[in-house]
Write a protein that binds this DNA or RNA. Structure first.
Length: 476
RNA sequence: GGCCCCAUCGUCUAGCGGUUAGGACAUCGGCCUCUCACGCCGGUAACGCGGGUUCGAUUCCCGCUGGGGUCGCCA
């Protein structure tokens, strides 16, 4: 049977980097096995859910290159894929549970419970409040607001075999009568997710380890409904560099942050997949390799801490290597970052000529756009420190001489330019060190750039000669 | 605190009874060099502790310690 996997985000913010990791594992397995990847929007919390968040999450998925077979925008045979549109299903299921004595109405108010929770906390800060079961055996049905609670068995234990963690056993006595339906009639996570995973025929639920505690509750529900539970696979946590749960307080937890900071999507994917999954000593993977090699038995159990430096390096590999990011794609992806610098009419041909020289230097597209700037801004912006240091009176003569020497070079290519320059320098008794930095500042406005002759080749004869001339003036 | 889970360099990890404990990032030296990078060479750096099992434990079992998760009318 082809597996059906799902990722079920709550649209109450952006796509979290940890969520992206979970989605990726699900997606990889679905793609490798020829299964189905479903996106389901868990918007049962009216207060926190927004359409704007749905859009942001879908955009993040698109940017990462993770497509979904069923879900928002594409539909599918198990829809609707928004839980807010499936209320009738939950209502019927809940009524059945109540009718069969497996769930009950609880009239305790949130205020009462909160007060009890606080009182307990005041007495013993470490103790956890457990719902005392006040309404568990209640027979009357007063005309008051109520929630529906699950009647958790008091005896026995609920066990399941996790694909990553193995057998996990939870004593039922440790579970309380958890709430299934809110006062407002909306279902809670455990109820809605269980019903949907069953109705949508999900075969494997893979999610982060912080859901391990929900699993027994969900299994209890599957049993109460008489359904066969899916398989479960829990993933170790991605923690902050300090080892805390990743939250908004930490830098860049949302996927769009990484996009905006100029990282390539595959760099993000490659880094996060290594949280919990590995294949021998291999560090860098293409998407294709991930799809081919992903397996649950290579997923480990221990949590990992996010390391910004390592991430930057992995992302850099994906920018640097032509085999991982072909030139046309690089050009397309860097354009928005050039536009942010005001460079809007960038000719494709020159862009492609310039990229090979800068891609091994730029660690992000933000850096790349910066490094590309002088190719598309004429005259280039001049770094004053570089000017003061290198465009000296002595340099003026060198620049003028170099300009004249290069004026007639044919063909206008790096090798010919280099040969001619060296010939000129030798005749003058100069070495590259004597004039290279001055020439660099004249050509690029900066003290750091790709090798001079590559810069000249991209700039072309006209601009090269003009900039050398202008450099002569500035120096003199 | 109850329940659940985890434990190899600073970080991500390989290892699945016998290895000089490997790789990557970071870090420290050096090389290359027209700058900045890239690249290359080399160094420092880990099996948390205590019991077992075994001829032999990083590896299997138990305890301790440490870390994390969870205990909502959030998901």
């Amino acid at each position: 049977m082809k597996p059906r996997l799902r990722f079920a985000p709550s649209p109450s913010g952006y796509l979290h980097i940890g969520g992206a990791r979970t989605a990726l594992f699900n997606w990889l397995w679905a793609r490798q096995q020829g299964g189905t990847f479903v996106l389901r929007v868990e918007d049962t919390d009216q207060e926190r859910s927004s359409l704007e968040s749905v859009r942001a999450i879908l955009d993040a998925f698109r940017w990462l290159g993770l497509d979904w077979d069923e879900g928002p925008e594409v539909g599918g045979p198990y829809g609707p894929y928004f839980q807010s549109e499936r209320k009738e299903l939950y209502r019927e299921a809940t009524e059945r549970l109540i009718r069969e004595g497996k769930a009950y109405r609880c009239y305790c108010t949130k205020e009462e419970l909160d007060r009890a929770r606080e009182e307990l906390k005041a007495k013993n800060p470490k103790a956890a409040f457990v719902y005392p079961g006040t309404c568990r055996e209640r027979r009357d049905e007063p005309d008051l607001p109520f929630v529906v609670r699950f009647k958790t068995p008091r005896e026995g234990s609920t066990d399941f075999v996790d694909r990553v963690f193995g057998t996990i056993r939870t004593p039922n006595a440790a579970q309380q009568d958890f709430v299934l339906v809110r006062t407002d009639g909306y279902p809670l996570y455990n109820l809605a997710a269980t019903i949907d995973d069953h109705e949508m025929n999900i075969t494997l639920v893979a999610r982060a380890r912080d859901h391990i505690g929900n699993t027994p509750q969900q299994i209890l529900l599957y049993r109460a409904f008489g359904w066969e539970p899916p398989e479960f696979a829990h993933l170790p946590m991605m923690l902050s560099p300090k080892g805390e749960k990743l939250s908004k307080r930490h830098a860049s937890v949302s996927v769009q942050d990484y996009r905006d900071r100029g990282y390539p999507p595959m760099g993000v994917l490659n880094y996060i997949v290594r949280f919990g999954w590995s294949l021998g000593d291999q560090e860098i993977f293409s998407l294709k390799e991930l799809i081919e090699n992903f397996s649950w038995d290579r997923v480990n159990k221990s949590d990992g801490k996010f390391d910004e430096k390592k991430f930057a390096d992995v992302a850099f590999e994906h920018l640097k290597r032509e085999d991982l990011m072909p030139l046309p794609e690089y050009a397309e992806r860097v354009r928005p970052f050039l536009e942010k610098r005001g460079l809007t009419n960038v000719p494709e041909e020159r862009l492609r000529a310039a990229i090979p020289g800068i891609r091994e230097r730029a660690r992000t597209f933000v850096d790349a756009a910066h490094d590309l700037d002088y190719y598309f801004r004429d005259p280039p912006e001049l770094d004053e420190k570089a000017r003061a240091k290198f465009l000296t009176r002595e340099a003026a003569a060198h620049l003028a001489g170099l300009r004249d020497a290069l004026a007639g070079v044919e063909p206008w290519e790096a090798a010919a330019l280099e040969a001619k320059t060296k010939e000129w320098a030798e005749a003058k008794g100069l070495t590259m060190k004597d004039f290279a930095q001055a020439a660099r500042v004249a050509l690029t406005g900066r003290s750091a750039s790709p090798p001079l002759f590559e810069v000249m080749a991209v700039l072309g004869r006209e601009q090269t000669l003009a900039r050398l001339a202008r450099g002569t003036e500035l120096a003199g």
